[in-house]
């Protein structure tokens, strides 16, 4: 049974603390070589205490939230705002809340609000998404 009722939450994704190795790997894999994410001197030169995560890494987490629930290839749209910086060591929790479900192409298009929050409960990255669920196994 898949939650498709407005207000229902999809399974939460709790990520491990953002570490330097992850930022190095994400910089390499994404091609975003802005040193503010990987070099502490560069980060300090702009007044930050340490390197900060790529906003796009948190968007990647929200993509994972959705594909963990709906499967690879199910995301039709994802749009986010980067509201706050993600610092080294932050542990992000990703959540999705169903807004509406529409019958489409023999399946269901589910619109959701999605967000990632830090341990202080602040939403660092938030937005909305559309996910296609094949079949007619509506809950």
């Amino acid at each position: 049974m898949k939650p498709q009722v407005p207000g229902e939450e999809i399974p939460v994704l709790r990520k491990e603390a953002v570490g330097k190795l992850q930022l190095l790997r994400y910089a390499g894999a994404s091609g975003d070589d802005n040193l503010i994410h990987t070099d502490v001197e560069t980060a300090r030169a702009v007044g930050l205490p340490n390197v900060i995560a790529h906003g796009m890494l948190s968007m990647g987490f929200l993509g994972q939230l959705l594909t963990d629930w709906a499967g690879a290839g199910a995301v039709r749209r994802i749009a986010v705002r980067f509201s706050r910086m993600v610092h080294l060591g932050d542990r992000l929790t990703c959540r999705g809340v169903v807004q509406e479900t529409l019958a489409q192409d023999g399946g269901w298009l589910v619109r959701l609000l999605v967000y990632a929050e830090n341990e202080a409960g602040e939403r660092v990255t938030e937005g909305d998404a559309e996910v296609f669920l094949a079949g007619s196994d509506r809950a």
Binding site: K15, Q22, S30, G60, G63
Partner: peptide, 12 residues
């Protein structure tokens, strides 16, 4: 590499 960097666990 992109999936690994995110810490994604989806096999595909």
């Amino acid at each position: 590499r992109f999936a690994e960097a995110i810490g994604d666990t989806e096999p595909l």
